[in-house]
Design a protein around this nucleic acid. Structure first.
Lengths: 187, 187
DNA sequence: CCTACTCGACCGACTGTCCGGTCTAGATGG
DNA sequence: CCATCTAGACCGGACAGTCGGTCGAGTAGG
């Protein structure tokens, strides 16, 4: 339904600006031009709405990485592609991206666990790329899963620096690629 | 006062477990073995209490890095020292560390801004180390500030992976040092 | 007339904050 | 040594506002 999408889109913007708890269902309804009761016809609860938003975002990311695995690319190219995808995703869906980033601590333990599992799956597919690259002698990596986490954390934290908005995407991906591939030491 | 410390310590644990909004002043009071009203004798508000906790943590970190600048160490050793400090800090003050990590989105815009400024200062002193190392030919770095953010994000995201608790600290710092110094490419 | 959908007034639970009051340790002073 | 006073620390009931969720009444289309 179109209404469903409108609700989600309004909610994303508000969640991104105010966080989960400071965004009320009434605000979302108003932003969407709907009555509050209508939200509850489309979503079971506020948490359900929130989860729907995040899962849609995570799914887009994970399906990209999974598709990548089937492409004929060198491992290095795959990493480059992921960096570029992340930057593009962030630039296009900035509010959604910040909602996903912030999701860890606003909700109950059950919800957190489910989200961590989702992210663990994503880290695992990325770790697979690192591992394969290592086995074929392209990468030198001690712990692929740890490296996957470090990689994601590195990219995300740079993207969400609040005063770096004017940095060019090309420059950004160049900096990140150098960092992850070569490190900072000169020799 | 000792009571003040007891309040803060109880609050840290609860904030770490439940987040800001799901922790009530009554819970904190009970955990501390005090009456609810007492909290308001020691702190102006819930937010004031929260801020006090976070600032104490940030200060410990920033004063470590600032002291580091005056020590006679190579730039590489300084970076290693920061990694080790972060790991140690995390292991010792785990709840406090996760509260600091999660602080970005629970509160109002004013509060967020102040916190970002604090962190920007920290990033800046780290960036100074990178910059000096670059100028003396030890590091090859395109953008020191960006690199500082990437570095912090990398380390933090690894530390806060929820299922990595049993990883040895020595191993961890080795992995992180290799990553930041050498990257993952083999050549 | 039935289904899918929308609406917004209302309810009930919750929680930050306030405030009137208690308790205790020490000071005062006779 | 006792009676009195003071004030800092502490208590917890009550208030006031907020917000997620419900419900009964509508509406539109087929």
């Amino acid at each position: 339904m179109d209404t469903r999408r409108k609700i989600m889109s309004s909610a994303v913007n508000l969640f991104a600006r105010n966080g989960y708890h400071s965004t009320t269902m009434e605000m979302i309804a108003e932003e969407a031009g709907l009555g509050k009761g209508t939200l509850y016809w489309h979503f079971a609860s506020k948490e359900d709405l929130y989860r729907g938003i995040i899962q849609a975002g995570l799914q887009e990311y994970s399906s990209f990485v999974e598709n990548l695995q089937e492409k004929e690319l060198t491992y290095e190219e795959k990493i480059r592609a992921i960096i570029k995808f992340k930057i593009r995703f962030y630039l296009r869906h900035k509010p959604l991206a910040s909602v996903i980033m912030a999701n860890l601590d606003e909700l109950g333990a059950d919800f957190k666990k489910r989200m961590w599992q989702e992210q663990r799956k994503n880290n695992q597919t990325l770790a697979d790329i690192f591992l394969q690259g290592k086995e074929e002698g392209v990468f030198k990596i001690e712990d692929p899963l740890l490296t996957a986490r470090a990689f994601n954390g590195m990219v995300d934290s740079v993207l969400f620096s609040p005063d770096l908005n004017q940095v060019n995407g090309k420059v950004l991906s160049g900096v990140l690629e150098n960092l992850i591939f070569r490190g900072i030491l000169k020799t």
